[in-house]
Amino acid sequence: SPEVQIAILTEQINNLNEHLRVHKKDHHSRRGLLKMVGKRRRLLAYLRNKDVARYREIVEKLG
């Protein structure tokens, strides 16, 4: 489901952010981070168009 995919991506994004705080010059990982953020944004847009209630619920849960 989109909610699960968004939750997994959010966790991976948070982990990668911590990694990049330590390894500032790791541009390869930064590119992966940007791809993940874009994918999460697309999934959220899809969910917002399909079911606003589910969209609001996941945004509330994940912050």
Rank of each mutant, 00 (worst) to 15 (best):
S1N: 09
S1V: 06
S1M: 07
S1Q: 07
S1G: 08
P2N: 03
P2L: 15
P2E: 12
P2K: 06
P2A: 12
P2W: 14
E3K: 02
E3I: 06
E3A: 06
E3V: 07
E3T: 04
E3P: 02
E3Y: 04
E3D: 05
E3Q: 04
V4A: 12
V4W: 12
V4G: 07
Q5N: 05
Q5E: 10
Q5K: 07
Q5G: 04
I6H: 01
I6L: 04
A7C: 15
A7H: 09
A7V: 10
A7N: 07
I8Q: 09
I8F: 13
I8M: 11
I8S: 06
I8V: 07
I8G: 03
I8A: 09
L9C: 02
L9W: 03
L9D: 00
T10L: 06
T10Q: 03
T10S: 05
T10N: 04
T10F: 03
E11N: 06
E11C: 13
E11Y: 05
E11M: 12
E11T: 07
E11D: 07
E11K: 08
Q12E: 07
Q12C: 13
Q12N: 06
Q12K: 13
I13G: 01
I13W: 01
I13N: 01
I13K: 00
I13T: 00
N14G: 04
N14I: 10
N14P: 01
N14D: 06
N14S: 05
N14H: 10
N14K: 09
N14R: 11
N14L: 10
N14A: 06
N15P: 01
N15V: 12
L16R: 03
L16Y: 07
L16A: 05
L16V: 04
L16W: 08
L16F: 07
L16K: 02
L16S: 01
N17T: 14
N17V: 15
E18P: 01
E18H: 09
E18L: 10
E18A: 11
E18M: 09
E18I: 08
H19M: 05
H19N: 03
L20K: 02
L20I: 08
L20Y: 04
L20Q: 02
L20C: 05
L20F: 07
L20E: 01
R21M: 06
R21V: 05
R21S: 06
R21T: 06
R21Q: 07
R21W: 02
V22W: 09
V22L: 13
V22Q: 10
V22A: 12
V22S: 13
H23S: 04
H23Y: 04
K24H: 11
K24A: 09
K24Q: 09
K24F: 07
K24R: 11
K24G: 14
K24P: 14
K25N: 13
K25P: 06
K25L: 08
K25A: 11
K25H: 11
K25F: 09
D26M: 04
D26I: 03
D26E: 05
D26Q: 05
D26L: 04
H27E: 09
H27G: 08
H27K: 11
H27T: 07
H27Y: 11
H28F: 07
H28D: 13
H28S: 14
H28C: 13
H28R: 12
H28M: 12
S29P: 03
S29K: 08
S29W: 07
R30S: 06
R31W: 05
R31L: 13
R31Y: 06
R31T: 11
R31H: 10
G32V: 15
G32E: 15
L33Q: 02
L33V: 04
L33Y: 08
L34H: 08
L34D: 07
L34N: 09
L34Q: 11
K35M: 09
K35H: 08
K35Q: 10
K35D: 13
M36Y: 05
M36S: 04
M36D: 02
M36E: 02
M36P: 01
M36Q: 03
V37L: 13
V37F: 08
V37K: 09
V37N: 03
V37H: 07
G38W: 13
G38N: 13
G38R: 14
G38H: 13
G38M: 15
K39L: 13
K39E: 14
K39R: 09
K39G: 01
R40C: 09
R40E: 01
R40D: 00
R40N: 01
R40T: 03
R41C: 15
R41A: 11
R41Y: 10
R41F: 10
R41I: 07
R41V: 05
R41P: 00
R41N: 12
R41S: 11
R41K: 10
R41H: 11
R42M: 10
R42V: 09
R42I: 11
R42C: 12
R42W: 08
L43D: 00
L43W: 04
L43G: 00
L43Q: 01
L44P: 00
L44I: 03
L44N: 00
A45W: 10
A45T: 07
A45G: 07
A45N: 09
A45P: 15
A45L: 11
A45H: 09
A45Q: 11
A45C: 14
Y46K: 11
Y46V: 12
Y46M: 11
Y46T: 10
Y46C: 11
Y46F: 09
Y46A: 12
Y46D: 15
Y46R: 10
L47D: 00
L47R: 00
R48Y: 13
R48N: 02
R48D: 01
R48M: 07
N49M: 13
N49P: 00
N49G: 10
N49A: 13
N49E: 14
K50M: 14
K50Q: 14
K50C: 13
K50Y: 15
D51Y: 03
D51W: 03
D51A: 03
V52S: 10
V52M: 14
V52R: 13
A53W: 04
A53D: 15
A53E: 15
R54A: 11
R54M: 08
R54L: 14
R54Q: 05
R54N: 03
Y55I: 03
Y55F: 08
Y55K: 02
Y55V: 02
R56V: 10
R56H: 13
R56Y: 12
R56T: 11
R56D: 10
R56E: 12
E57A: 12
E57N: 05
I58L: 10
I58R: 00
I58T: 03
I58W: 04
I58P: 00
V59T: 05
V59C: 14
V59F: 04
V59A: 04
E60I: 10
E60Q: 12
E60F: 04
K61M: 13
K61P: 01
K61V: 06
K61H: 10
K61N: 06
K61E: 06
L62R: 02
L62E: 02
L62T: 03
G63E: 07
G63C: 15
G63T: 11
G63F: 15
G63M: 15
G63P: 05
